[in-house]
Structure formats: structure tokens, C-alpha cells
Amino acid sequence: MNDSERLLGTLGFKNMNGEGAVAETFFPWDLSVDRWVLEGLPDRFASRKLYRAEGERYQDYYNDYMADPVYEYEQYLGYDGVKRMSFRIPFKSFEEKVIEETDDYILSLDTDGWQRRHHKKRKLVEHVRPVVTCEEDWESLKARALEEMRIWCTDENMEKVYGKYREDHEKGKFSVRFRASGFFWTPRELFGAEEHLYAFYDMPELMHDINRFILDIYKEYLGKIARILQPEVILFEEDLSGSTGPMISPALFDEFVGAYYKELIPLLRENGVKNVFIDTDGDFEALIPNFLKAGVDGFLPMDVNAGMDIVKVREKFPRVKFIGAFNKLEIDKGKEAIDREFARILPVIRQGGYLPGADHQVAPSASYENYLYYISRLKEMMKQAGADII
């Protein structure tokens, strides 16, 4: 069984007969790997080498910067092969420039089009003006993004970035985990967090125009990408909930978010995408039925410290798939704590449809020794993946 088959089987509610997939939820935290280098991890995995972001302009949008370095790091640690990549609509295409400088601060236009005041004498960055405040701003940004895409997001460049992985992926040497920004996340980055929430009520037509634009781009470009590489998992970044619940109501979700997934997900499936996941922190349980109606398969990272109990959620939603759900804060507490946490989530491992991993990036408070123990126990636990399935 190759790495692609192991992952699909594990998430597909199959009894894996002792061969459940072993993978981590997210790419590693830079501070963590730098600590682990001091404790025995080879220096070639230090963050200055792992997080390489040097390439052609089009790779900022057809992004595979972390695909090979993180793959090599995870292979060294004994994980199954995963190549992580993404597609980004070119909203962050501004040239940085200084608008005003004083003895105390620099007011700048940043690459995402925001104006920010960067203070010199203290670690403080003030958000002065978002890139979108009104319809005129949006029309200007939309035109900029379309022009940037016309120049850089060509079919030729798409093939250069993603095509080089096609042959080995088709042989199952690794799975592909693909990222894109969702229909809640993207407008929030344009408006700002508070302004975004007001916009649902104050500027609903503008909100719909933004998400319709995103949808149309995704239907064209994600469809083409999926014909080159069929991701085992595509993640849409949303982060639409906090520790006390979602930031929007089910009704607002259905109108401004779910409706767009309902249009997009069938196209992704037609082009070979196997699993559509939502990446959101916090407690989002109230919106799970709405996500499912929109066609979503599963969720990550199942934030334990925000109250997401994977055992209880699986009882309510027996066919929902999960990635993550291992309390990352238990790793730095040592072997007994790690064993207890695995015992907590083992019933869901045995039910299938679940790829265990940390419920976010493993923090630098965890020692390399404890992280290696966590990986060794994860491998043991995954021998029971889907064991309760007849």
C-alpha cells in the first residue's frame, strides 16, 4: 500500500489492517524546529532552511515553496509522504513603500495593500487603513488582482509548478494536501476583523461581490490545478470561530459562505479532489450541519483548548472526517501525558475517518525527545485505524 492509498483509506472509513496513515496536521512551527535542532534534529531542517520562499513571482500564487523542504523533514521523522502546496488569489501584490517616517514610527503601505504604523521604540504595529473600505476600493483591488493573474497565473506557469509532481503523485509516493483561503477568511483579510463583521449587515452586496469573484476564480483555477494534481485533501482556511463559538450565525453562514461552497465543491469532485476539509480554530460545532449541507467532508485541527471534543463530536456526526484533535499542549508534559491523550482519542481512531495529529502546530515548549515519543506512539496507535469497522 502506497502513501496515497494509506491516507485515502484512513480518511475513507476503511479498516486499515494495521497500516493507518501517519501524518502531521500542519507544517512545523519555526521556533519549534529551531529548538529541536539544538536538541538533535539535523541542522538542515532549521527554519532558515526549511522556510525557503525564494522563487519566481508566479510561485507567490502557485505556491509550492514548502512542498519539498517540509516533505523531507517529515520523511526524516518517519511520517508518510505529504506534499503541501497552495493557490493564492493575488490580492497581496502591492509594492511596499514608506508613506511617512518620524523618530517614533514608520507609516507604510504593505504588500497586502494595508497601511500600517510600525513603531520603532516598541513592538507595536497599528493597522491604520485596510485595503478595502468601500466598493471603490474593492473595484480597484479586483482590477489589480486580475491584471496580476493575467501576467503571472498562466497555464504554462501552472504546469511548471504543479506538473513536476504529477508522475510521482500518480505512483502514490506521496499525498497532496492543498490549501486555499475560504469565503469567510478572505474578506476578513481585506476588511479587517471588526470591519468584516459589520460588513455582513452594512455592505452585503459588496460581500457577495467579493465572494462571487473568489468563487469564479476558484472554479477556473482550482479546476485546472486539480486536473494536473488530484489532491487527497484540499483545505479551505476559514478560522470563523472563537473559544465561545462561531463568529457568524448559521443563517449568515448559509448566505455568505455555504452558498459558495455549494457551487464550488461539486466542480472539485468532478476534477478528482477526494476530500474537502475546513481549517478553522475555535469552537465551530454549531456550524457543522451547515458545512455538511454545503458539501464539506471534514475539519481540522479540532482545537481541544477551545472545547472541541472529537469523541463527542463524532457521536453526533458519525460520518464526519477529522484531522488533528490531539491536544498539542500535552506533548511538552512528557510520556504519560502523551499516552493519556492517545487513549482519549483512540475510540475515534478505531472508528476510521480520522487522521490524528496535533490540534495546531507543536509549540516550542515541547522538547525534541517528547516530540519523537509522540511520533512513535502515533505510529503504534495508527495500527488500530478503522479496527472497529467490519
Results as ranks from 00 to 15, higher is better:
S108K: 14
Y221K: 14
I248K: 03
R44F: 12
G258M: 10
E95A: 08
E189Q: 15
K97V: 01
Y368G: 00
R6I: 01
Y65T: 04
E135P: 07
L229N: 05
S241C: 13
R129Y: 05
F94V: 04
P318E: 06
Y368H: 08
Y62L: 10
G334D: 03
T10H: 10
V276W: 06
E341Y: 04
V98M: 14
E159G: 02
Q59F: 05
E147I: 10
E205V: 11
D309R: 09
A358G: 15
Y260M: 03
D279K: 05
I214V: 09
V98H: 10
M381W: 00
E24T: 03
F45E: 04
D30A: 14
E220T: 08
H208S: 08
A193D: 13
R319K: 15
L267H: 12
F213H: 08
R57H: 14
H208V: 06
E270Y: 03
M66S: 09
V273P: 09
Y221N: 09
F91M: 07
Y76K: 04
Y198H: 11
F299R: 06
Y71D: 00
L146T: 02
K92H: 11
K164R: 15
L38Q: 12
M207S: 06
S93N: 14
R350V: 05
I225Q: 07
V132P: 01
T25A: 05
